[in-house]
Amino acid sequence: MGGEKHEVRREVDDVPTQPPVRTVMQGEHHCRRRPRHQFVEPLVTPTLLVQVQRLRHYFEDEGRAYLARTWLIDEAETATPSAGTKGRGKQEPWNGIDWYVSFGDEPGSRSWDDALRYGFVSAGGGEWFSRTLRSLPIGARVFTHIPKVGYVGVGTVSGEPQPFEDAVLTIDGYSRPMADLPLKGTYRPTPASAEADGQDRREWIVPVTWEQAAPREQALWRPGFFANQNSACKLRARFTIDEVSRHFGIDQDSADA
């Protein structure tokens, strides 16, 4: 695979278990190999923790013994961070309260107009999409972002996650089943998608009390803002928190206390 390193050392006698300083060579080795041993261990770099497979091979060619190693880096562990984020080795501290929420405002699906009017965030369509949203605790402060549009609101989680069919929202002081409300969006999966592979494709609703929120057309976005493909995650990006809070007039004292 791309990015492999091959390391070869010629040994006169037996191959030692702890070889001395070695010479590194690039490229393929076209000699006949006869593996005798291999093992896997992690490698830690100063700025990034990655999972690396280090494979050790012993082989012989025309009576000469060789030692070779190959490092295979897991691409999933070395993915390029999203714009506005930092590498894992430079991760900012979390204040224990702020969360990022991605709200997919899409035609034929959920609607930000509904979320703004009735006070909720939601995600669905599969376990991967709803799992992180369902981890939001009551009292969490959510910075809500519409992908490719911008940040549209900041609020506090006020209830447990529930599937759309069971969700109850507080409207003007009264509890109302969400399914009974006049809605612009669609929150029920189609029968075909619901039965396709046995996954939980329901839309999950998390009640939110908005501190400040705005229509989609007034969304805030600036270069360097945090964005993430998960429906929810802990928000550590200080620049994003400060700028969105300033824009919406949110008090930072309580979160930083």
Rank of each mutant, 00 (worst) to 15 (best):
P93A: 10
E106D: 11
A83L: 13
P93M: 10
Q91C: 06
W71L: 14
S109K: 06
G96P: 06
I73Y: 10
D113G: 00
E106H: 12
G84Y: 08
W112I: 02
G89R: 02
D105Y: 09
W71Y: 14
E92S: 13
I97T: 14
I97W: 07
N95E: 11
E77Y: 05
R69W: 01
T70H: 10
N95C: 13
F103Q: 03
Y100G: 02
W99K: 01
W99Y: 15
T85R: 11
I97A: 13
E92W: 08
I97H: 12
D105H: 15
E106P: 00
W112P: 00
F103A: 07
E106Y: 12
G84T: 09
D74I: 03
T85N: 05
R88A: 14
W71G: 02
D98K: 00
R88K: 12
E77C: 10
K90I: 00
G96F: 04
Y100P: 02
W71R: 14
K90Q: 14
T85M: 09
G89V: 05
K90G: 01
I73N: 01
S82V: 05
T78L: 13
R110V: 12
T80V: 15
Q91P: 00
E75I: 05
I97N: 05
A83K: 06
S109D: 02
E77K: 07
N95Y: 03
T78K: 05
G96L: 04
S111W: 03
F103T: 04
D98T: 15
G89M: 04
K90R: 13
S111M: 03
E75M: 02
W112N: 01
L72M: 07
P93W: 10
R110W: 01
W99Q: 03
R110N: 04
W99R: 10
G104F: 10
T80I: 15
I73P: 00
S111Q: 03
E77L: 11
T85K: 04
A79Q: 13
F103I: 08
T80N: 05
A76E: 14
D105G: 07
E75L: 09
E77Q: 11
N95H: 11
D98E: 09
P81V: 09
E92Y: 06
I97V: 14
E106N: 11
Y100C: 04
F103N: 03
K86Q: 08
G89C: 06
G87C: 03
A76Y: 06
E77S: 13
S111F: 01
L72G: 00
T70P: 00
Y100R: 06
P81H: 06
R88L: 14
Y100H: 11
I97D: 05
G104Q: 14
S82K: 07
E106W: 10
G104S: 12
P81D: 04
S111H: 07
S111G: 02
G104M: 08
S102E: 12
K90E: 15
W94N: 09
A76V: 04
Y100A: 02
P93F: 10
S82I: 00
G89S: 07
K86M: 05
A79C: 07
D113T: 14
I73G: 00
R88W: 06
S82Q: 12
G104I: 04
D113V: 15
G89I: 03
P107Q: 10
D105W: 08
L72T: 11
K90D: 15
T85V: 02
T80S: 13
A76T: 10
E75C: 01
G84L: 09
R110G: 06
F103W: 08
A83F: 09
G87S: 05
E75G: 01
